[in-house]
Nucleic acid binder design. Sequence first.
DNA 1: TTGTACGCGTTATCAA
DNA 2: TTGATAACGCGTACAA
Lengths: 388, 388
Amino acid sequence: MSGDGTRAGGGTAGAARPTSRDVARAAGVSQATVSLVLGGKWPGRVSAATAESVRAAAGELGYRPNLAARSLRTGRTRTALLVVPALTHEYFARVYAGAAAVAAEHGFGVVLYPSPAGVGPARDPFGSAQTAIDGVIASSMAADALGGIGGGGLPLVMLDSEPAPAVGGASAPAAAPDRAAPDRAAPPTVNLAVADGMRQVARHLVALGHRRITHLAADVDSWTFRVRARAVREVLDAVPGARLAEERCALDMGAAREAALRALRGPGGAGGADGRPTALLCDGDLLAAGAYKAARALGLRVPEDVSVSGFDDLVLASALEPELTSVRLPAEEVGAHGMRALLALFEGAPAAPVELPVRLVPRGSTARPPRPPGCPVPPSRDLPPAPG
Amino acid sequence: MSGDGTRAGGGTAGAARPTSRDVARAAGVSQATVSLVLGGKWPGRVSAATAESVRAAAGELGYRPNLAARSLRTGRTRTALLVVPALTHEYFARVYAGAAAVAAEHGFGVVLYPSPAGVGPARDPFGSAQTAIDGVIASSMAADALGGIGGGGLPLVMLDSEPAPAVGGASAPAAAPDRAAPDRAAPPTVNLAVADGMRQVARHLVALGHRRITHLAADVDSWTFRVRARAVREVLDAVPGARLAEERCALDMGAAREAALRALRGPGGAGGADGRPTALLCDGDLLAAGAYKAARALGLRVPEDVSVSGFDDLVLASALEPELTSVRLPAEEVGAHGMRALLALFEGAPAAPVELPVRLVPRGSTARPPRPPGCPVPPSRDLPPAPG
DNA sequence: TTGTACGCGTTATCAA
DNA sequence: TTGATAACGCGTACAA
């Protein structure tokens, strides 16, 4: 017991941290009164004068409530865990910022858990994220990847993941709300309108006159990328004469470069100019950067010879030359809505699913294709409009 | 009291979280024995058989110690706070990752506090970062910017900040260890050899033949940038005939572009080719990206007409065209060392200051200047070698 | 070798 | 309007 006093900090003046009892003594009241006042629940229970004197004493002593004790007593920690596949990414950093800002407004903290397994099944974060938490916000993860996390049956919000049954949007047929998840109610979701974003890009390219488009797709098995692929296909399927190819690659620049090279060299590797896609529609700005490199390696100019589009609108997008046509994602908003949904969950409120709009930002990397569609093309190949 | 059971989670099977008493009952021992066994302090105090049965019971019940209770009892939270000026930056994300990895190895967690004020004085993080913490790691902040944080007199480690008295390096004269900080012992530091990095860049440019160099400097008052400016000056001062200018700008691409335009247009804004710097040495990759834009706007090619160098070696560096000569920073190492220093501080160990080496990564953005220094230059202007 | 008892600082219930 | 008092779950002297 006597050793406890020595422990605190490394400073010289290790004055023991004042407790609520110290404040009570200083103010000449009881501990309970201090708790009431500082907890903001005094109106009607403690006289204004007493309340003021308590606050004064607390301020004087520099009193800070002991969070551990509070948590022990209340059972809540006022802390949320944000699980992200990779922190080293602008998008997730912004999601965090948005979540943390809202959390702070409500006296909550947010701790980050970069899932080591990427989007795959997350290993129990409680092992390493030592902090006790009240709830979890999981971003861009497979719906079932949270097995380890759900262990405690904690309130959960999913970001950019499988959409909840019906969002009022167009495509998804409204199914029975509880049919999807077997043993557990489907968690609230905050989604980006990625499908719509992808459609915007595809339509933009089509409107420019592109008919041979290759989708440079991220080779990652997560909802967001599956949705994107489908959206592109839907748009292109509806355009007579359009031809869509898909080239998959890992989510890094080098892989993207290789994939783009394959795409631009054409089916047989011959590099014939007329079989070549006139536009590369990429799943991310990073992939688009790789596509730029491939184009340059082949002596092709962007956008004169080949148009390139990205997704995410990172700072990278405007750093590239020419600046990259991309899709701006309201990352902070996603984080903020996620946190709000979690807070709502704490209150026992329903927390309706949210879908946030995204916006195409056209820049210099997309232009009309080298040969406008109206002109006579040399060997007018007749392929089916919807390739496999 | 009866209400407490209902609180947990949102799941249907809200089985109350097992406590150590539950484990004790299940194993047929006392609570104290459970604590001893699970705390790993049983050897010599509890029989192996009992220990095993306790562990079995704990595993069976899925017991997880209540962190709040543990913290309350021990006075420690096993959590460190990492203060960074901006999370939306690859570098800090990597620092976090490095710190978190080391922390996890030691059963610690790391929570992030993105200082809203940037590198300026940080507002009390305890207000928003609700988590109780054992110590603080502050990255890239002014030494005195942590006034609000030091409040509790918590153990503190500084990253990429004012160096501790003597690091064994070259420049700083070894002063009395405690002379610098007035009321408090100087915190351990983990530094990058930014000065050396900058010297490497400067020498690289000089070796290529550059004599007219403009330092595109970040207009941020922090140690790291002051050191960089000085290092460049030192190198250039030692080169006969070299001329260094400095152009300051905010840490973003747009500002960098403007600053680079000013630099490239020359002193009088005339844009004369011979007064123009042949190299732009930038304080960061982002600034370098802005410099690229300025060069293009003026119809100058990189590196044929003007060389550009960066700092940080973000992914952006290799996304640019041509790829950017930059300085690679071991960000994860910085975080890891920072966490180790903090752990050492917890142990009461001295924690020697660390300086981590950085490495120049030459790429395509730097080349020989348009006019080699040996050639006769038209109107050989005679300016002093070290401009203000 | 094991069990008992106490207290960490807070909040919440109840009686005054 | 206020003050005792009892938990919350755990770690650890101390007694058995």
